[in-house]
Computed example of a mutant assay.
Amino acid sequence: MAISRAELAQYVDHTLLKPEATPSDVDELAAEAGELGVFSICVSPSMLPVHTPEGVAVATVCGFPSGKHHSSIKAAEAALSIEQGADEVDMVIDIAAAIEGRFAQVEEDIAAVRAAVPEGKILKVIIESAALSDESIVGACRAAKAAGADFVKTSTGFHPAGGASVEAVRLMRETVGDELGVKASGGVRTADAALAMIEAGASRLGLSGTRAVLDGLDGVETADAGDGGY
């Protein structure tokens, strides 16, 4: 696929979620985000508020990385993040509920956070796709759609099962159609992998090595679908 460096950058949530990240690290991330022209930065909620260059949104995470938090706690965390300047919230579902097919519970969990994230702010739902069967991926995506989410997202990047795959992104896109965004995150480290995710249906990419991905775009015309994931 033909895409410019600037166009690819606008798919990117430039991400720093390491537990050891410091405020100065986040400041450097924000400055680099402006230089690279990315869509947003994504940081831990305790790092908020954070100043970003003009045109760079602020995303954060909720119930991260396990998803094993009470829905009321996730909702409170999301509400505080919005109060502290977040434009987007990436929440983690209860992965076990999806594995066991308890999709009504998954939907209720997402709906609680949706109620705390007001209209005009974006809610992304992390389903940890590498830990799920295809059936569970479909069920979790349908639950996110029913609960009013704006995006479904593959991965936290912290689960031992791995991160994004082309196959999961394609299935997620087929499930939600054009009504929701799909974010590929976790293990996308090259321009080839990034382009493969976009070709499969990703409308956003979570990258921690953004500069390397963008630098690798030179000379890349098509993406190899085998490069996705961890």
Rank of each mutant, 00 (worst) to 15 (best):
V50P: 00
E128Y: 07
A79P: 01
G163K: 06
G67L: 01
G148K: 08
I126T: 04
R173A: 04
P65V: 04
D178A: 08
T175Q: 03
A75V: 11
G63C: 09
L132D: 01
A21F: 01
A59P: 04
V117E: 15
D94W: 11
M1A: 12
A168L: 07
G201Q: 10
V220E: 02
T190F: 03
E179A: 12
K124P: 11
V38E: 08
V43Y: 06
A31C: 08
E83C: 01
V220Y: 05
A140S: 11
V12E: 07
A149Y: 12
I82A: 04
L180C: 13
E54Q: 14
M197C: 02
E199G: 03
G101Y: 07
A202Q: 05
E167Y: 14
S40N: 02
L195C: 05
Q105S: 14
A225I: 15
V169D: 13
A31S: 15
K121P: 11
A147L: 13
L195F: 08
A98D: 00
D90V: 01
D87M: 09
G177K: 08
R102S: 07
A115R: 14
D134Q: 15
A97T: 02
V58E: 11
R114M: 10
S71D: 09
S66W: 11
E77Q: 11
T22R: 13
G216A: 03
I93N: 08
E77A: 07
G162S: 09
A116M: 07
G187A: 01
G177D: 04
L48C: 02
E108F: 10
P160H: 09
I41G: 01
S66R: 12
D218A: 15
V61E: 02
G206D: 01
P49Y: 11
A86N: 02
D215S: 07
E88A: 12
D178M: 03
V89L: 14
V213S: 12
S165R: 12
L8A: 04
R170E: 08
E54G: 10
A194D: 00
A196I: 04
V89N: 12
A76L: 12
A76H: 07
S46P: 00
A146P: 06
G216Q: 03
G55C: 00
A31N: 14
F158P: 00
T15Q: 12
L123K: 14
I198N: 00
I126Q: 05
A143D: 10
I3M: 15
L214W: 06
P53I: 06
E199F: 01
S40M: 09
S136N: 15
K145T: 08
P23A: 10
E107D: 03
A21L: 03
I127C: 07
D109M: 08
E135S: 14
V125K: 06
G37A: 13
A33S: 09
A115Y: 07
K183I: 05
A21P: 00
I137N: 06
A202H: 10
T52L: 04
H51D: 13
S4W: 05
R211T: 08
E83L: 09
T22F: 09
H70N: 00
